[in-house]
Computed example of a mutant assay.
Amino acid sequence: MLGISQRDRIGTEAAEAIAAEGSYEVYFGMGHVLRLLNRPDVFKVSPAGMSLGDFLVRDLTQDDLRGSLLDMGTGSGALAILLRGLGAHDITATDISASAVKTAMENELLNFGDQRISFGEGSLFDGPRTKRRFDLIVFNPPGWHSPSEECREELKRQNLRGLNLSAMFSGEKVAFDFLRQLPHHLTSNGRAIVGLNSMIGIRSVLSRIRELDGVGDALEFKLIERHTFPLFFYSGDWRESRDILLTEFHRWRDRHGIAFSVSDDGTLYWSYEVIECRLAAKFREVRA
């Protein structure tokens, strides 16, 4: 928990940031509206993030909210703050980015006026706040597969400084590492709600997990819902790299089995899949 002076300081910084940088609203249904700071180095809530938040509003029960909850890769803190708004009390939220954690803390103060969420910096389960088991883990990993050397070289030649490669690429590696460690961080009846992008090669990731000794038979996966979104190139740098990326996406489909479709007008559509992960029955019995 923050001391009073630190809460006041962060609250003042949030107010100053709204005046200087602006903010935006996100609505998740059933009256849950969040106001979030608009920071250039922290992703705004995407349509995929909106879908995951909408699912949490529809799905979580009061029993779920009484448990221990982890929002991994919290970014702006939107899902963690939503969980608090739904009534959760034991919420941990982590991100690999220090600036994202700072923004998330400010966003909680902006929406609630105080701080109850345990925010911390860390990569996956490496942070001190994640050395425990949780009843519910929510995770929205990076959405694209790791780039090929050809792609990296072409992007480097274009000097596209606005592209945040670590935040967008390597989704298959992050998802694999998360699932590999997940059985050690779920309570006996716990579950993880993970939003996976078809551009990482979901089938390949899950197949590799199932082949791991001690992990493959520990987890069960269930597709909860699926959404289809068009791919937009929002920034100038993304638009400049469009041809490079489209070529790379086709490489991924040939080499790694990622899934997408292309309409007659050339728009690429990808799939966002909300997947529930639980311990297999024999592991739940042992842990109980």
Rank of each mutant, 00 (worst) to 15 (best):
254 D>W: 13
222 K>F: 12
204 S>Q: 06
250 H>Y: 04
212 L>D: 02
247 T>V: 10
259 A>Y: 14
245 L>I: 07
215 V>G: 10
213 D>K: 15
202 I>W: 08
234 Y>I: 12
253 R>W: 08
215 V>L: 05
265 D>V: 10
239 R>S: 06
239 R>E: 08
245 L>R: 05
257 G>H: 06
236 G>Y: 07
199 M>E: 01
238 W>F: 13
239 R>H: 07
207 S>M: 14
211 E>G: 08
263 S>V: 05
215 V>N: 06
237 D>G: 03
205 V>R: 00
237 D>F: 07
215 V>C: 10
196 L>F: 14
243 D>K: 04
205 V>H: 01
222 K>Y: 12
253 R>S: 03
244 I>C: 02
258 I>R: 08
199 M>T: 06
266 G>Y: 06
245 L>V: 05
220 E>M: 07
228 T>I: 15
252 W>G: 00
230 P>L: 13
255 R>A: 14
239 R>W: 11
249 F>E: 00
244 I>T: 05
239 R>C: 10
258 I>P: 04
223 L>G: 15
234 Y>L: 07
219 L>N: 02
253 R>I: 01
221 F>I: 03
249 F>I: 08
205 V>T: 12
217 D>Q: 10
229 F>K: 00
203 R>C: 11
246 L>S: 04
246 L>N: 03
228 T>F: 15
198 S>N: 09
219 L>T: 05
214 G>P: 07
259 A>F: 15
257 G>N: 05
260 F>D: 10
258 I>Q: 11
236 G>H: 05
250 H>L: 12
205 V>D: 04
224 I>P: 01
241 S>V: 02
246 L>V: 14
264 D>R: 07
243 D>F: 03
210 R>Q: 07
231 L>T: 05
227 H>Q: 14
245 L>W: 01
230 P>M: 14
201 G>Y: 00
219 L>Q: 01
255 R>C: 12
258 I>M: 09
232 F>H: 05
263 S>A: 13
206 L>F: 14
244 I>A: 02
205 V>K: 00
246 L>T: 05
217 D>I: 11
214 G>T: 15
213 D>T: 11
260 F>N: 06
223 L>Y: 10
208 R>I: 12
265 D>T: 11
